[in-house]
């Protein structure tokens, strides 16, 4: 890849709880900082970093507010819409994204519980409002731009997605970066804690899933794995066990970006919705 674009491989320590992990990661981030400075010709200053951290924390706090609205018995916004919003944060500038997000939150806060007008799109078979629909958590692999296949299937077949436990969902904003520490240390500490399945042990993720399931009053979890993202495939077992013990049904789906399995997934989702309602 380095033949085509400037590439730097950031080495992640995979045992984030070991005492040397943050130190090693900090060292890596500093090296990366040097590479970026050389590449762009700009010097990274402490002050600039602090400002960016404050700005990103603002985005995170807005996302907390957006997700808070989804805890309502009748969420004012569909999961597919939130996923599309989340995908935009990787394309828009921080300022544009925050502006759009503020407008969206203002609008969503106005939606009355009984005015979920998107219900018209659902199949005649499922005339229920969001309030009567099984509340679904999607947990697992990220869903970058263009990838809304599984969420669309879920929401077209009678479910409402209330939270996504993934790197394009909660994991992207769940913890703020400490604004009072040395910025590089604060960044290292925040990002090493992300419970990606490539980390070990990763009990943090299981605890977080159970916590989110309670907070968002989740009826069922769709464990979503992209083919060849094997970490999540392996961790699926632990996630299933933990949720089963908590009495929360799980549907595991392994898929890719193609549309070839839409009907097969649809059948599983139909059956899962029938099971939950």
């Amino acid at each position: 890849m380095g033949d085509y674009v400037p590439t730097y491989v950031l080495d992640l320590p995979q045992k984030p709880d070991s005492p040397a992990a943050v130190k090693y990661f900090l060292d890596e981030l500093n090296k990366f900082k040097g590479v970026m400075e050389q590449l762009t010709g700009n010097k990274v200053t402490v002050e600039q970093l602090k400002n960016e951290i404050i700005s990103s924390n603002e985005t995170r706090k807005l996302l907390y507010r957006l997700y808070d609205l989804r805890k309502k018995d009748s969420p004012p916004i569909s999961g597919v819409d939130v996923i599309k919003v989340m995908q935009k944060q990787y394309v828009l500038s921080a300022e544009d994204f925050k502006k759009a997000l503020r407008n969206l939150i203002d609008e969503a806060e106005q939606v009355k519980a009984d005015k979920a007008d998107y219900k018209a799109d659902y199949k005649a078979d499922y005339k229920a409002d969001f309030i009567h629909m099984p509340r679904i958590m999607i947990s697992g692999c990220p869903m970058p731009g263009g990838n809304t296949k599984v969420p669309e299937i879920i929401e077209n077949r009678g479910g409402v997605i209330v939270v996504e436990e993934s790197c394009t969902g909660t994991r992207s904003f769940w913890d703020l970066v400490d604004e009072n520490k040395d910025p590089m240390i604060a960044l290292a500490e925040r990002y090493i804690k992300i419970p990606c399945s490539c980390m070990t042990p990763n009990d943090r993720r299981i605890d977080n899933i159970l916590e989110l399931a309670g907070e968002f009053k989740v009826d069922g979890v769709v464990n979503y794995t992209l083919q060849f993202c094997h970490g999540y495939n392996i961790e699926r077992y632990k996630v299933q066990q933990a949720l089963k013990n908590a009495g929360i049904p799980v549907l595991s789906i392994e898929t890719d970006y193609s549309d070839s399995d839409v009907e097969q997934i649809g059948l599983r989702v139909d059956a899962f919705m029938e099971m939950l309602s």
Partner: peptide, 17 residues
């Protein structure tokens, strides 16, 4: 698999149920 294409049916249900 064809459950949603059978237009003269009153309702569809998954094979699992």
């Amino acid at each position: 698999y064809g459950r949603n294409s059978i237009k003269f049916a009153d309702r569809a249900v998954s094979e699992i149920t």
